[in-house]
Design a protein around this nucleic acid. Structure first.
Length: 369
DNA sequence: GAGGCGTGGGC
DNA sequence: TGCCCAAGCCT
């Protein structure tokens, strides 16, 4: 059934409506100041925005608090060893963010005397800060009007205008509509940026949107047509390939230390710590010989225990199935980027999630023996 | 500009 | 259970 054409609501009215809603309903988050209050230090805004890239609020909160405690000011973070930053980030994912975070802190110290520039274009030049984050920091930390268009904002606007084509085909329009709203007022730039995202995060959610509570329900094309939950149209789904590998949990003869190494700085899990492993290929290794040739050169091992359960881990673009071989090494001249680490300290290293799974599995089997 | 890049939680 | 997803950036 066709819906009668709605009256266009002026951007300034939408803006005010949303800010009023935000004043009443915004969440209390560790990196957020209350509505109309003095903005948080740019360091905290930036730190939270980097962590929140493609990551849920729930996952971020403990990491944000840990970082702030460890490195209260940007000069502390800039002065930290990269390894310590990676260790603190371990488990949060998208590790290029941690490398860029550290680089960015050092760049702000060197180029801006420790103060983030209060300028969107200048922020954009810093490592790890793209169009979204530059606008978010400019508006939230400095109250500069700027359109921070993230996934939430795109979804909200796509529904409001009833867009029936994929988001990627509407980037220009989405940005332009966001700007209309942002520049429809001259104050509270930071609150407005957050209000738009807050709407997407709490009411205008991907699934089960709470249109009945939405301050914009009167003008929302998708809602008025009863199709809010069906928008935006999802991109075609692709099949995730499976990759296979074998990973070595190698103990010293005294069983007190294990062999760890560092991954190259670029690419998957760049710069993070790992257990030695075969490459992760689309077919499993065929023979024991195929597997053993990937053992660290300096290590000789007599006996292996193959863990009964494979580790299954879902990366963004492939699924990994890892066999875990546990063994005992008899040679110990660790080279660069490799080391024997006391078992009690393994968990403090920069182990990505998949390697934390491997370690837990190894400890489990150890306990059972 | 399309693909690489993590992880844990919700349904 | 498996699938989908969350405040993007970089190359």
């Amino acid at each position: 059934m066709p819906v009668p054409p709605r009256k266009t609501i002026p951007a300034a009215v939408l803006r005010k409506t949303l800010l009023d809603w935000y004043d009443a309903h915004c969440r209390d988050l560790p990196w957020r100041s209350p509505p109309s209050a003095t903005p948080p230090p740019a360091y905290r805004v930036w730190l939270s925005e980097i962590m929140l890239q493609q990551t849920t609020v729930t996952a971020v909160i403990p990491y944000f608090l840990k970082f702030l405690k460890k490195w209260p000011q940007i000069e502390n973070l800039a002065a930290a060893d990269r390894e310590d930053v990676l260790e603190a980030w371990a488990g949060l994912g998208y590790y290029a963010r941690a490398r860029n975070l550290h680089q960015c802190a050092r760049a702000v110290m060197e180029n801006y005397g420790g103060d983030f520039p209060a300028d969107e274009a200048e922020l954009r030049k810093l490592p790890g800060i793209g169009p979204y984050t530059a606008a978010a920091v400019a508006s939230i930390a400095f109250d500069i009007p700027a359109a921070a268009v993230d996934g939430n904002v795109e979804r909200v606007i796509a529904r409001y205008h009833g867009l029936k084509t994929p988001l990627r085909d509407n980037k220009k329009f989405l940005k332009s509509e966001a700007e209309k709203l942002v520049f429809a007022g001259k104050t509270r730039a930071g609150d407005f940026t957050q209000s738009l995202m807050e709407l997407g995060a709490t009411l205008c959610t991907p699934k089960n949107p709470q249109c009945g509570r939405c301050p914009w329900q009167g003008g929302c094309v998708a809602h008025l047509n009863g199709i809010a939950a069906d928008l935006p149209v999802p991109p075609p789904k692709t099949v995730k390939p499976v990759r296979y590998g074998t990973v070595f949990v190698l103990f010293c003869p005294d069983k007190k230390s294990v062999f760890l190494q560092k991954r190259p700085d670029d690419g998957l899990l760049g710069g993070m710590t790992e257990f030695p492993s075969t490459p992760w290929n689309e077919t499993p290794p065929k023979t024991g010989k195929d597997i053993k040739k990937y053992l660290p050169q300096t290590v000789k091992t007599a006996e292996w225990q193959v863990l009964p359960e494979e580790i299954v881990h879902h990366f963004t673009h492939f699924t990994l199935r890892l066999s875990v071989w546990q063994g005992c090494g008899t040679e110990t001249s660790a080279e660069n980027r490799q080391s024997w680490v006391p078992a009690a300290e393994v968990e403090q290293r920069a182990l990505p999630g998949v390697m934390q799974k491997v370690w837990r599995a190894a400890l489990e089997s150890f306990k059972r023996k």
